[in-house]
Simulated assay, not measured.
Amino acid sequence: MKHYLLTASVLALLTSPGFATWQQDVQDQVNLEVGQNKVIQKLMKSQDYTIDLDEGSLLKTITKVVQVKNEKKKGGQQPNPTDIDREAYRQIANTLDSLKTSRAPIGGGYYLTKNFRGDALSVESGYNPLAYPVRSSDRERPDGFLPVTYKSNFMSVRLCNEIDHYVSNNGLSKDEARRLNRYLQPIFYIVQQEVSQMLEGGKTKSLLYSQRWVYGKDYSDIVKSVKGQTSHHHALIKYAGLKGFNPFVVEDSLVPSLVDLALSFPSSFKDSSERR
């Protein structure tokens, strides 16, 4: 019994603030650098919901701070910088993973989430169905803006091809066209979602028929809605330094053609289904 009490007393002493382990120091510093409150503060100050998440720089900062803290502690073995670095890397990864599923509100209707790939911390809102990675490099990757709920349907390929055709005929180099295409391709999903709502009956419940779902938009309303969502997308990519990026041409010319193309699918899709 005395041995148990002694062990408990030593454990309590070692876990007290005055005897915090270096692993706890790492956790405290990780929270200061990439904790939920810190990330949200940085996002709120950004212009396009991108922030610097350079792990290499973060690891150097955290390792140095933890080393300095432990040099001041009397007694005990000083942690190896490699061990600190490894522990910091692990805790940074765990912290960012937890943020991806937190759905923590940022303000202005935005909240934390992850994208379709699941490997990029992102923000999402009710303004359009896309996810916006908070790290600029993640926005450069294929499918970077697609949300975790993304599903393809019979419109996807042809809408994507239409955007690709627009970008390819924009007088850009191969690399410039490829980059612009990655930032404009997500518009296909905006169109797909809007037209799919029409085909499925929409999301507005009729007041007269409480058990019936109706869709209250006509063609001009659909175009207006897609243009509004596309405009929001453009607002969040305008700092990407894209060559050949003309949001007005995309919204006033490409969007209507995409809507026309999407609306032409249901009848042809139905006809082909009936022939099979």
Rank of each mutant, 00 (worst) to 15 (best):
M1F: 04
Y4M: 09
T7Q: 05
S9P: 00
V10Y: 07
L13E: 11
L13T: 11
T15P: 00
S16D: 09
T21G: 05
Q27H: 09
Q41E: 14
S46F: 04
D48E: 13
D48Y: 08
I62M: 03
V68W: 03
V68S: 10
V68K: 11
V68N: 13
E71G: 04
G75T: 06
G75M: 06
G76E: 06
G76W: 08
P81S: 02
R86D: 10
A88T: 12
Y89K: 15
N94Y: 08
T95V: 02
L96F: 05
S98D: 15
K100R: 15
G109D: 09
G118D: 06
L121P: 01
Y127R: 12
Y127L: 12
Y127H: 11
S136I: 14
P142T: 12
P147D: 07
Y150T: 04
S152T: 13
F154H: 09
S156M: 05
L159R: 03
C160G: 09
Y166V: 02
V167M: 02
S168F: 06
S168K: 11
L172A: 08
S173Y: 00
D175V: 11
E176S: 12
R178C: 02
N181K: 14
V191P: 00
V191M: 02
E200C: 03
G202A: 08
K203N: 13
T204W: 05
L207H: 07
R212G: 01
V214R: 07
V214K: 05
Y215T: 10
D218Q: 11
Y219D: 07
K227V: 13
K227F: 04
T230D: 05
L236Y: 08
K238A: 06
A240L: 01
K243F: 09
N246G: 03
V249P: 00
V250Y: 00
E251Y: 04
S253I: 14
V255Q: 01
V255L: 06
V255Y: 00
S257V: 13
V259N: 01
V259M: 00
V259G: 00
V259Q: 00
A262H: 02
L263P: 04
S264V: 11
